[in-house]
Structure formats: structure tokens, C-alpha cells
Design a protein around this nucleic acid. Structure first.
Lengths: 140, 140
DNA sequence: TTGCTCCTCACGTCACGTGAGGTGGC
DNA sequence: TTGCTCCTCACGTCACGTGAGGTGGC
């Protein structure tokens, strides 16, 4: 897919970081792979969650950017806000050179998030109970 | 609580609608009673959900406004957006003179909303499952 | 020249929160 | 004069969607 002659001059100039592991991705590549919009990827960059290198004006994402995106989306799926996710990613980056495969949540963070989601779940449960009751009352 | 001498001139001038059933409420009265902010009540008015009469610049809510607010908050609790709620209230108002005690949802609307909430519930359930699994893996 | 991909503003959406600065009547 | 309640802008938050208008290289 991304068969642009980009590695013509590897590790040269501003393409250093993109060439870290050879493979690079365009914004459309990542958007397709992860099922998000281009706007979303630009927005995450604006929020400081991603920082692809530039090829002229074009964005070039490397393997570490791709790994970070996977973590961001996992964080979202777990119900964290982008601000929270940025904090988690920063701790991640500080810990080690290589990108971690998952967000390293502390027991406290996990418990807090579980409590948060359980509260939401109860609200939804109450709404569902009322709707189902109304539905039954109409069935007669 | 709202012991202002407002009924000094009942059903006169622009206070007609407020005097519909005698009782009137200030914005603070309703905010306290329903546990919402003043900003929220002004926002609902801006969105066309409420339309209190004015006493000078001050807002005066009548019984029907209070009843509408109760319906709005019930709609929110059931997971409807304000736009959807406005639609429901408009149908409500068209049907009869007196305010209904509950939103008259059609079977279709109920089923749609149930499906909507169940989808949300599943997302939360998946997140909770993963968090609980991570939590267990740490406990050892 | 046309098409395609990508770009940067910048306003819109949702449901409000949060000041700033001002008013009316006790 | 001080306090209290209420008011109107109007910008901020959250996570983007949605054009508008323009660029680069096949």
C-alpha cells in the first residue's frame, strides 16, 4: 500500500524518526487500519498524543506512532479521556525506550475506572428498566 | 420560599401565563428543586425547551414550566438528547391542553432507545471485563 | 488538464461550566 | 453602602465532523 519511495534517503534530515524501524505510514494508512478519520489523527496530534514527522507538509507515521495510536484507542475503549490517556502515555515513555504493548495502569487507576464505569452502567440499567416497563405496559 | 408579592396584580399584563395556576417559581426555586444549575435552565430556554414569562428581566416559571422541566429531566434520564426531547414535548403540547405526566413514547421510539442503550451497555461491559481481568492479573 | 491525496484554517455540535461586568430592590 | 439574586454576553470544555480553499506529484 504505502509504496512511496520514501526510504530513498534513509535516516537523513527530518526523516530520522520515521526511519527508526524502516516502515512508515501515511495518515490514510493508519486511518484505514484503525478505522478512524483523518481528522481524528490530526486532532490527536494537536492534543499532543501523536507526533509524526513531516515530509514537506505531509505527515509520516512510524512504527512507534502506530503503537501509540493502538494504545490511545485501547485507552478510549476503556473509557479514559484523551487527557488521561496522554498522562498514561507520558509515564509509558518515561519508563522505557521501547513502546509498551499495553497501558500500565496502577491498581488504583483500574479500581477508579471500574467504579466510574459501574456508575454509568447503573444509570443505563435504570433507564432500560423504565423503558422496558413502559414497553410492557403498551403490549397489553 | 417564593414569597414575593407577585400575585399583587394577578393575570395582568405579561404575567398572564405565569398566573395560569397561581403558583410561580423563580429560576433559583426550580434549580434547587430539581438539582440543576441556573445555567442549565437558561440553556434549556435557549434551546426552546422552556419559555418562562418575564418580570422585568427576571424569569418567572409557572406550573406548566415546572411540569415541562420534569419531563425534560426524565427524558434525559432515559438517554434522549435535548433535540429529541424537544420533539417529544412538541408532540405532547399538540395533543392536549394539559401537560402530560410522562413523555408519550411510541413503541418504535422505546425499542430504538432500548437498542441504543443496550449497545452502550455492551461497550461498557467489554471495558469492565478487560479492566477486571487486568486487576486479577495484578492481584497474584 | 484532470484526479487523487494531503494540507491548514475555522466554524459547528453537544450540554453545559465559568467568569466578567451590570442591575434591582430590600 | 452592603448583600443578595438575577441578568446578559461570551469564551472554554470534550472529541471530533464538516466544509472551504489550496498544494504537490503522477
Amino acid at each position: 500500500m504505502s509504496n512511496l519511495p520514501l526510504y530513498a534517503a534513509p535516516a537523513s534530515g527530518s526523516a530520522r524518526r520515521a526511519a527508526e524501524s524502516g516502515k512508515t505510514y501515511t495518515i490514510a494508512d493508519l486511518a484505514r487500519e484503525f478505522g478512524v478519520s483523518l481528522r481524528t489523527l490530526r486532532f490527536y496530534e494537536d492534543r499532543g498524543l501523536l507526533s509524526p514527522v513531516r515530509m514537506g507538509t505531509r505527515r509520516l507515521y512510524g512504527e512507534s506512532d502506530r503503537a501509540r495510536l493502538a494504545l490511545i484507542l485501547k485507552g478510549k475503549q476503556l473509557g479514559f479521556t484523551l487527557t488521561e490517556i496522554r498522562g498514561l502515555l507520558e509515564r509509558e515513555a518515561k519508563g522505557e525506550g521501547a513502546a509498551a504493548a499495553s497501558l500500565r495502569l496502577s491498581p488504583q487507576q483500574i479500581d477508579d475506572q471500574i467504579a466510574h464505569l459501574e456508575a454509568q452502567q447503573e444509570e443505563i440499567e435504570r433507564a432500560l428498566a423504565e423503558l422496558r416497563a413502559q414497553r410492557k405496559a403498551m403490549a397489553c
